[in-house]
């Protein structure tokens, strides 16, 4: 059973009185452990597909399954539970809370799951060390570089051990080398921990790092292929 499955999913936004189709009949399935990229130009529907999979938005039409369960019509409270426990998010702009330190930003994910303060601190420090931020735990986002901030965001997404991490243009705000480091880290976590990654990008160099490349254009899947050679992000 695929971890995520979209069956003929449509999403239309209302811009004033004019409907704007963002996703038009997308069908795809994502297996556990995949390291896949959603690629396409700006406005092709990448973010909308990620939001739909993450339960942040509902499809206008079609069915969306998470671990075999139809989440298309799930009430908001249950979708929140799903995000809280099983899905990790990484954003283009890092979206860290500026008044919290690195370790506290990571702890935020665990606080929502009701962990004790001791466990929260222990687990967050471990994951920060794992993403290469040992020694920077008490720095606030403004005291970190862009790459370091994105590492904190990755740690925040991964600390709760989600089944899938959805990353929306995770390298778009980073220079090439830093972006490559972030992709290396994600690929490494995918390989060592088996976490499923689905990330969006419009950068061809980033697309090359994925093991599976799903190309979107104008809200439709125009290509979906496995990349056997460089897919491990090495």
């Amino acid at each position: 059973m695929p971890l995520v499955e979209l069956r003929d999913v449509y999403k239309t936004f209302q811009n004033g009185v004019a409907p704007v189709p963002a996703v038009q009949g997308v069908s795809l399935a994502l297996e556990r452990g995949e390291f896949a990229a959603l690629a396409g130009p700006s406005g092709s529907g990448k973010t909308t597909v990620l939001n739909l999979i993450g339960g942040l938005d509902r499809p206008t039409e079609g069915r969306l399954f998470f671990d075999g369960r139809d989440i298309s019509e799930l009430p908001e409270t249950e979708r929140t539970q799903l995000r809280r426990r099983r899905i990790g998010f990484i954003f283009q702009t890092f979206s860290l809370i500026p008044v919290l330190s690195s370790v506290e930003n990571v702890e935020l994910s665990l606080a929502l799951l009701g962990f004790t303060t001791t466990d929260m601190r222990r687990m967050s420090l471990e994951i920060l060390e794992h993403v290469g931020l040992k020694g920077l735990e008490n720095r606030r986002p403004a005291q970190l570089s862009g790459g370091q901030q994105q590492r904190v965001a990755i740690a925040r997404a991964l600390v709760k051990d989600p089944e899938i991490v959805l990353a929306d243009e995770p390298t778009a705000n980073l220079d090439h080398d830093t972006g490559a480091e972030i992709l290396d880290l994600m690929a490494d976590l995918n390989r060592t921990q088996g976490t499923t990654f689905l990330f969006s990008t419009h950068d061809p160099k980033v697309m090359e790092r994925a093991r599976r490349l799903i190309l979107l254009d104008d809200g439709r899947v125009v290509s979906d292929r496995t990349v056997p050679s460089r897919g491990e992000g090495t």
Partner: peptide, 16 residues
């Protein structure tokens, strides 16, 4: 507002 979106994505309930 964007931060609120991030918190919701992390699984924070609207009441929280």
């Amino acid at each position: 507002t964007k931060e609120v979106g991030m918190l919701r994505a992390l699984g924070m309930r609207s009441t929280e």
